[in-house]
Design a protein around this nucleic acid. Structure first.
Length: 824
RNA sequence: GGGGCGAUGGCGGAAUGGUAGACGCAGGAGACUUAAAAUCUCCCGGCUGAAAGGCUGUGAGGGUUCGACUCCCUCUCGCCCCA
């Protein structure tokens, strides 16, 4: 016995945290002979507090990283802060405190909380995106994109609040379309903005062949978001003034072109003004105005009643030669395709609803073979399936895919269109008319127009003391010292771009910077990049499945093409944790009043208990309910480990083998196997259950003679090592109390021998017609013949068989035997 | 409306097509204690039985199989994503 002290997490946790940090045991070496492993978790926004979700996310993540370290990897596990963004500005306005001050104070507090988790963070690689030594390189990256023509400026629609006289981010627009600050109805306005040409990478982003382990769900979501569709662009014609003009439409169904009975422009389409007849103008203008006030989501909603207005104009169908009326309707979006569609009500559901509403004729031009001839006026919905062309002049009788191909061939020959691929993915709008972000490194010169800031003049520094407007408008627009500059080309007076970059830009490359966080000469060196990247394991919420992860992939592919990276997928393996919910099964939120702060429980039970509890809730990917009661379970478990090791450790173990010691040794190997396999597959809950079982068995035998054995002492030692990734402090403390001088976290993960995980006896289950009737202890190497004899001669089994005849005996080695009988 | 995921004791959950409910919480009984807390021991799906045991049971209904929580079909409910 070595100790009878009480388990006091407070004391040991701060002791070991200090010691680990002083010894730098978690700072990944750039020069290690071990294989590198880059273990990454999505970095937090510095809201000021580490909440339950962070603990739920980081505890298993850290346990996994510790497991990999003990398995012999040189693990890099960095942490940092996604520190730009709107909340800092809101705090600045509300509390009269500078955004930078607020953010850095929050970071300071969160660092403390992150340290208290006892995770193996490599603090030497910390990145903070709002500091100039980081955003200098964000700006540098922007310039690289600009040089390659991947960053451009154009008029793009933005959320505009007429009350505040400013643009709003999507998050600032409430669900009812009003401004969160002043309540005005938000409009969409065309404003000059910067975009990144992600659309030119659409095809490449659809290729996931370089990732090794991503959730299929996430890949599907990205594919749908990119929204590739094959089809044709067809140019309709119209006479405007005295000129014949062409207007392109995109369709995935060129085979339905004879079914066009109307034509629709998006309300903001440039043609609307040109072609509307004087009689229709007032009505059209009113409709355009109304559509402008709606969000795209509202407009696209399929259960919304269709609306639209006739323009008075007509276009000519270039294939059939027919004239069709031109409408405008808000279900057509300017941002998809060409902002114009051919209306085929018979074979497109939305067109069908529109035609029904406005009494537009519906003409069937595709018929499924089994279909009877019927009047489209009697249909209740459009027939969207492929079929044979009818009512289509010379094309009648052409089936399915061939029909599409023949129309495409026809329009290409006539020069009135061509086959094409359309993507739903739009270019990435990165301008934010905000203060707290990385300034876009561009100046405007009367002489030279748009001029990029030369790389050696970076960073373009964000002024740190600014006056906020009550409206929330960006103070950068009123900072002459920031705005007024000189043209890098001619030295003449010039104005800086006052917009800052979307914070998704910051997070699109932070994982690259971790590899070389303090490089003041370049964003990263080739050497460090090649050493650490791509990321081996990435863990983060499914809410980032589309935007963040798609943007990061785009960055890496573009930077790869520019020669800055030697790989083109950033994250080899990806894991999405589930969400931790309140005890009522609802998402934690202030309004529901079910928010639980982790600090309270860390204070009461210690970090080890909270970490373990987070992992014990259930499968990591599934999330689960936080129930304070259940913390008691893991708390008791850790206490039992504490007293077991303290009371049972012997310095001079008995090395003789007994059947009991062999059984302990077998259990030790079995447990290593279970925990190793569970951790490899992110099954933290069952790994902990295995440790609890192991602990329970050892406790049961703690007063027996076997507790004096070498095997038992080995078992205690293994228990501590297996527990170390989960509960790093208590494991370290007990490791030292049992006479070890090194850190348990630098020890090698225990190995198991497959042979030792197998028992020499097992419980043979005897079923009769699939029902368990008897259990017999038998030797592991029992033959099938012996099993048959044993089972059939068993007294209980006999009594169940009675007069019935045995039809069949099925033996599953090592498990069970099923006797199939039939009553005579 | 489309797609995906899920539904197992009072609760969280566990089960390569092979002993359903591991592990833990809550609950019950007992030990220790002047008492309580802590700790320890036992019990703990339902029905039935003194017990041994029997029957039944993984959202509902069907199917495949010697055997189904697990595979297939239909339905109900819940969550997520897209519309």
């Amino acid at each position: 016995m070595i100790t009878r002290t009480k388990f006091d997490p407070k004391e040991i946790e701060s002791k070991w945290q200090t010691k680990w940090e002083a010894d730098h045991i978690y700072n990944a070496s750039d020069e290690s002979s071990k294989p590198n492993f880059y273990n990454l978790v999505m970095f937090p926004y510095p809201s000021g507090d580490l909440h339950m979700g962070h603990w739920y996310n980081y505890s298993p993540f850290d346990t996994y990283g510790r497991f990999k370290r003990m398995q012999g990897y040189n693990v890099m596990q960095p942490i940092g802060f996604d520190a730009f963004g709107l909340p800092a500005e809101n705090a600045a306005i509300k509390r009269g405190i500078q955004a930078r001050t607020w953010t850095l104070a929050n970071i300071e507090n969160m660092r403390k909380q992150l340290r208290a988790m006892g995770a193996q963070w490599d603090w030497q690689r910390e990145v903070i995106t709002c500091l100039p030594d980081y955003y200098q390189w964000t700006q540098w990256l922007f310039l690289q994109f600009y040089k390659k023509g991947l960053a451009y400026r154009t008029k793009a629609p933005a959320n505009w609040c007429p009350g505040c006289n400013t643009t709003l981010a999507n998050e600032q627009v409430l669900a009812d379309g009003t401004c969160e600050r002043c309540g005005s109805l938000v409009e969409r306005r065309e404003i000059d903005q910067w975009l990144l040409k992600i659309s030119s990478y659409a095809e490449r982003l659809l290729d996931f062949s370089e990732v090794t382990d991503w959730p299929e769900k996430t890949i599907t979501m990205q594919r749908n978001w990119i929204g590739r569709s094959e089809g044709a662009e067809v140019r309709f014609t119209s006479t405007i003034g005295d000129k014949q003009e062409e207007i392109p439409v995109f369709t995935t169904r060129p085979d339905t072109i004879y079914g066009v009975t109307f034509f629709v422009l998006a309300p903001e389409h440039p043609w609307v003004n040109k072609i509307t007849t004087p009689e229709q103008r007032a009505e059209v203008n009113a409709y355009v105005e109304q559509a402008r006030r709606m969000t795209e989501i509202e407009r696209m909603s399929s259960d919304k009643e269709k609306s639209g207005v006739f323009t008075g104009a007509y276009v000519t169908n270039p294939v059939s030669g027919e004239k069709t009326p031109v409408w405008i309707a808000d279900y057509v979006l300017m941002s998809y395709g060409s902002g114009a569609i051919m209306g085929v009500p018979a074979h497109d559901q939305r067109d069908f609803a529109f035609a029904r509403k406005f009494g537009i004729p519906i003409r069937e031009v595709i018929r499924a073979e089994e279909d009877e001839v019927s009047d489209p006026a009697t249909w209740s919905e459009a027939k969207e399936a492929l079929g044979v062309m009818v009512n289509s002049g010379p094309f009648d009788g052409t089936p399915g895919e061939e029909a599409k191909a023949r129309i495409i061939q026809f329009i290409e020959e006539k020069g009135i269109g061509h086959s094409t691929i359309n993507y739903r993915l739009r270019d990435w709008l990165i301008s934010r008319q905000r203060y707290w972000g990385a300034p876009i490194p561009i100046v405007y010169c009367a002489e030279h127009g748009t001029v990029p800031v030369p790389e050696d003049q970076l960073p373009v520094k964000l002024p740190e003391n600014v006056q906020f407007k009550a409206t929330g408008e960006s103070p950068l627009r009123y900072e002459p010292e920031f705005l007024n500059t000189t043209c890098p080309i001619c030295g003449g007076p010039a104005t800086r771009e006052a917009d800052t970059m979307d914070t998704f830009i910051d997070s699109s490359w932070y994982y690259l910077r971790y590899a070389d966080a303090h490089n003041s000469e370049e964003a990263w060196s080739q050497e460090k990049m090649e050493k650490w990247l791509p990321v081996d394991q990435y863990v983060g919420g499914v809410e980032h499945a589309i935007l963040h992860l798609l943007y990061a992939r785009f960055f890496v592919k573009a930077l790869h093409d520019m020669g800055h990276l030697n790989f083109d997928e950033p994250f080899k393996r990806l894991f999405h944790q589930g969400m931790v919910l309140g005890s009522d099964g609802q998402k934690m939120s202030k309004s529901r009043g079910n928010v639980e702060a982790p600090d309270k429980y860390v204070d009461k039970y210690g970090a080890d208990t909270v970490r373990c509890y987070m992992m014990f809730i259930g499968p990591f990917e599934a999330g689960g309910l936080f129930r304070a009661d259940n913390l008691e379970g893991v708390w008791r478990f850790l206490n039992r480990v504490w007293s077991l090791v303290g009371e049972t450790w012997v310095n001079k173990p008995d090395t003789r083998e007994t059947s009991e010691s062999k059984a302990i040794e077998r259990l030790r190997h079995k447990t290593i196997k279970r925990v190793t396999e569970d951790l490899s597959h992110f099954r933290f809950n069952t790994a902990l259950a295995a440790l609890m079982e192991f602990n329970n068995v050892l406790i049961k035998q703690q007063r027996d003679a076997v507790a004096q054995s070498q095997a038992y002492r080995d078992a205690l030692q293994t228990l501590l090592q297996l527990l170390a990734p989960f509960a790093p402090h208590i494991a370290e403390e007990l490791w030292h109390q049992t006479g070890h001088a090194n850190s348990i976290h630098t020890t090698e993960w225990p190995a198991y021998v497959e042979e030792m995980t197998r028992d020499d006896i097992f419980t043979l289950v005897v079923q009769i017609n699939g029902k368990v009737r008897e259990r017999i202890e038998v030797a592991a190497d029992i033959s099938e013949e012996e099993v048959r004899t044993l089972a059939l001669n068993n007294e209980r089994v006999q009594s169940f068989i009675g007069q019935a005849s045995v039809q069949k005996v099925i033996y599953i080695p090592g498990r069970l035997v099923n006797i199939v009988i039939r009553n005579n």
